[in-house]
Design a protein around this nucleic acid. Sequence first.
DNA 1: ATGTGC
Length: 480
Amino acid sequence: MEGLERIDPWRLRVPRRDPMRVEPWIYADERIRVEEDSVRQLQDAAAVEGVWRVLATPDIHVGYGVPVGSVVATSGCVLPSAVGYDINCGMRLLATPLARREVDVERLARDLRREVPLGEGKANVRVSPGGLEAILDRGVAGLSEAAGADHAAWRERDPREEAADRECMEDGGSMAGDHRQVSPRGRERGAAQLATLGGGNHFIEFQEVEAVLDTAVAGRFGLAAGQLLVMMHTGSRGLGHQVGTDYMGLASGGARGADRRLGVLSLDCPEGRSYVGAMNAAANFAFANRQLLTVLVRAVLRRHLGRDLPVPLVYDVPHNMAKRERHEGREVWVHRKGATRAWPARLMAGTRFADCGQPVLIPGSMGTASYILVGTEASAESLHSVNHGAGRVMSRSQAAGGRHGRRRRRGAGEGRPAAISDEAFREAMRGVLLLAGDRAAVKEEAPQAYKDIDAVVHVVCEAGLARAVARLRPVAVLKG
DNA sequence: ATGTGC
């Protein structure tokens, strides 16, 4: 793209000019498409008060104010639009001890579909107001206090298993949340939404380990070729969305640059500290959501494959979150929006990953491979961050030809790339069982609407930010 | 992403 300067085969520079305060860079090679509008968003983010670093991963694409696939570090303030609406949207991977070929995956997937509401606006587990407060304040650690929900996802929890699970979650599945900073409307939206999947790119997928790329680390993560895994991708649902809406609105009042969406909240003011409490509360809700979905997944696996089947959690990683971290000797707020923390062994001291580094879970698009990576010391240059997925190349309406393909516009719509045909979609999904909550909407997530995950992962590995541990192949996918 | 938009 014009205006970008190539640093080396894996890095592009966005030259600094007024009013930018810092110079962003992008991890991308010649195969990675970088939209002009997403570069403009990086330039705008680089002009925000208090900004210290701006960088983008190869899955970069346009987001609300700040691109998805970006890392923005600030000092003294937070930037809610650099976290986005789906606070603590993240990935979780469960391992089974079984080979995919010895399991009837289709039966499992169809059974799980009956347990998990798919799509937007769905409800499942309802908790009391006090129970919700415990979850918002302590995440997975608050689940045992939030007793009383009459639901299988609650009754079938195993406290010992849950304690072991917490050792395999970023921040132990528990941030310093403050339920009082979540608006009543946000709490209402979340009250009955635990153990739901949501829509868009969220999924639960049965996968097979197709290739082990680092035998030693894969062994440490409990992964071996041919193994059946369950991966999930979901976040904080309507509750997190409401937190994002409330605080982006609050921050926009003080926005100084061209884009009103890029308002910051100073941590010297109550509003900034409130956002941190509310964001952490929403993050806790998302951790609890993935935990209760895990209970349902385990219940289905055990019903079919044996009551005592071990189904350990490999790891749980957020990819939309702001966290206070120490980088290059200073305390900064690292906002990862569609970017995943990738800590090397040294930074995992005191955890069960102290000898190998943090598992990094990278989904491809629907119907394509996913990857397990591990962080490296060299990822310090990206503030220990990698991509979060493949990244869009087509908007939703573009992929489906209008909202769910129903609206086919003439005139203004002419000249834009053609929508994905039903035949091309079927071909791309060949060999993968697709169970979709909304048959029309699912085409918005077609593989063709996304970048090539192999190319994206290639860049972060070649740039030295992570090492590839395993490549996973989808077998059956549940979508919203 | 989202009880989905002018």
